[in-house]
């Protein structure tokens, strides 16, 4: 039996990791809500943002957090372009399958270009405060992990307020709930859908920066993220951001706890087991609404 302090530390780390998962899963939920698109490339953009953060630190000497000044607007623009120029042009009949393929192709393209530009070498940001940690009831928590969690939490809160409190958020949610009715009351659903994708991809920029703070990155890392993220949105049930957040926290926690007896590699399987079990026994997910039926 592991000691109480170790358990406590795992719980804290699991919750911190779950926060990042929740932010990324929220982006995926948003895309799915807007267009029924499962965006495989989300985690590739995450790694791209992490590389940009690493590059701005290593080559320009800027704090990685500052790279968000560039990456967040950049990714917003990329998201709008991605939706307007590519996804919106696919045939509606085969949209579900073809959009998965298209975003998969984009993920592979990004991975290839990252490998070409930065080589396959593993990279890590060396920060002055990188090794600092806080002691809390016997658990040691790295400061960078707290910063990453803080970033994710702020981004998630911003996303929530954006969706609930602004006119754009109302229009976006109307577009998600009933596109035809939204058009009838004068919402330009095409434009709103494009902006929605932009917002989704902007969360990947924030997530990527948070990830770069305390993780070693390499071009094919995104496959380690897309699997868990897919599992989270399926377990949470699509279409509900709170569902995704709860599933993210829960699975992040379980993964972190399982790392004690099983080690990091085998602990990852919890996501896939959860994915298969959910699809086999409760395919609409555990918190999902109407949207999940169509998944």
């Amino acid at each position: 039996m592991p000691s109480g302090a170790l358990l406590f530390q795992s719980v804290i780390l699991g919750l911190l990791l779950g926060g990042l998962y929740a932010l990324l899963a929220a982006g995926l939920t948003l895309y799915f809500g807007i267009m029924r698109v499962v965006m495989i490339a989300h985690s590739a953009f995450l790694i791209l943002a992490a590389y940009l953060a690493w590059w701005s630190h290593a080559r320009l000497g800027v704090d990685p957090l500052l790279s968000m000044v560039v990456t967040v607007p950049l990714f917003f623009g990329l998201g709008v372009l991605l939706q307007r120029l590519l996804l919106a042009r696919l045939r509606p009949v085969t949209l579900t399958m073809m959009s998965v393929l298209l975003t998969f192709a984009i993920a592979v393209l990004i991975e290839g270009l990252l490998g070409y530009a930065f080589s396959g070498t593993q990279r890590r940001i060396q920060l002055g405060y990188g090794s600092a940690s806080l002691g809390l009831f016997g658990a040691r928590i790295a400061v960078v992990k707290l910063i990453a969690f803080g970033l994710a939490a702020v981004a998630l809160l911003t996303l929530y307020l954006l969706l609930k409190r602004t006119r754009f958020g109302w229009a976006l949610r109307a577009t998600i709930q009933h596109p035809d009715a939204a058009r009838l009351i004068g919402i330009d659903t095409d434009r709103i859908a494009g902006f929605g994708f932009g917002v989704g991809l902007a969360t990947a920029a924030v997530g990527g920066t948070a990830l770069a703070l305390d993780t070693t990155i390499y071009p094919s890392l995104h496959w380690h993220w897309i699997g868990p993220l897919m599992a989270i949105i399926v377990v949470g049930g699509l279409g509900s951001v709170p569902g995704a957040a709860v599933a993210a926290m829960l699975l992040g926690l379980v993964q972190s706890l399982l790392q004690i007896p099983l080690g990091t590699t085998w602990a990852q399987t919890v996501f896939y087991l959860a994915l298969f079990a959910t699809l086999a026994f409760r395919p609409q997910g555990f918190f999902g609404g109407r949207l999940a039926q169509r998944f």
Binding site: L86, L90, L102, A105, I110, G112, L113
Partner: peptide, 16 residues
């Protein structure tokens, strides 16, 4: 790594 990039590009072109 350009293998990957070319595959992705080609797949995207075919899909589009």
């Amino acid at each position: 790594p350009l293998h990957l990039a070319a595959t992705g590009l080609l797949l995207a072109l075919v899909v589009m």
